[in-house]
Amino acid sequence: MREKKKKRKWLRIAGIFFMLLIIGIGAYAFSVYKSLTNAVETMHQPIQHKSDKRPEQVTLTKKEPFSVLMLGVDERSGDKGRSDTMIVLTVNPKESSVKMLSIPRDTRTEIIGKGFEDKINHAYAFGNEEMSMATVENFLDIPLDYYVKVNMEGFKDIVDAVGGINVNSSIDFKQDGYNFVKGNNSLNGKEALAYVRMRKQDPNGDFGRQDRQRQIIQGVIKKGASVSSLTNFDDIFGALGKNVRTNLTFNEMKDIQKNYRDAGSNIEQMSLKGSGQTINKVWYLIVAQEEQQRVQNELKAHLELN
Score class of each variant (00 low, 15 high):
236 I>V: 12
207 F>G: 02
205 G>E: 08
238 G>W: 02
248 L>D: 02
248 L>Q: 05
242 K>T: 05
244 V>S: 00
233 F>L: 09
215 Q>A: 13
224 G>D: 05
235 D>N: 15
227 V>I: 15
219 G>W: 00
224 G>H: 08
203 P>K: 01
232 N>L: 12
222 K>I: 11
225 A>N: 12
230 L>K: 07
249 T>D: 01
218 Q>V: 12
226 S>R: 05
220 V>L: 06
244 V>I: 08
212 R>V: 10
204 N>E: 12
232 N>A: 15
243 N>D: 04
211 D>K: 14
233 F>Q: 09
247 N>I: 05
243 N>K: 04
218 Q>I: 14
224 G>N: 08
242 K>W: 01
207 F>D: 07
198 M>F: 06
234 D>S: 11
216 I>T: 13
207 F>Q: 08
226 S>P: 00
214 R>H: 09
230 L>I: 14
241 G>T: 02
199 R>E: 00
198 M>L: 09
225 A>F: 08
245 R>Y: 02
222 K>P: 09
230 L>V: 12
203 P>T: 01
214 R>T: 08
247 N>T: 06
247 N>C: 02
240 L>I: 07
207 F>T: 06
215 Q>W: 13
229 S>K: 15
226 S>G: 07
198 M>N: 09
239 A>V: 03
209 R>N: 05
222 K>C: 11
205 G>S: 09
228 S>D: 14
248 L>C: 01
220 V>D: 05
222 K>S: 15
237 F>Q: 11
201 Q>C: 06
211 D>A: 12
205 G>R: 06
198 M>P: 06
213 Q>N: 13
223 K>T: 13
200 K>Q: 09
246 T>G: 03
233 F>Y: 15
236 I>H: 07
238 G>K: 10
201 Q>K: 11
233 F>K: 04
201 Q>F: 03
200 K>H: 10
211 D>L: 10
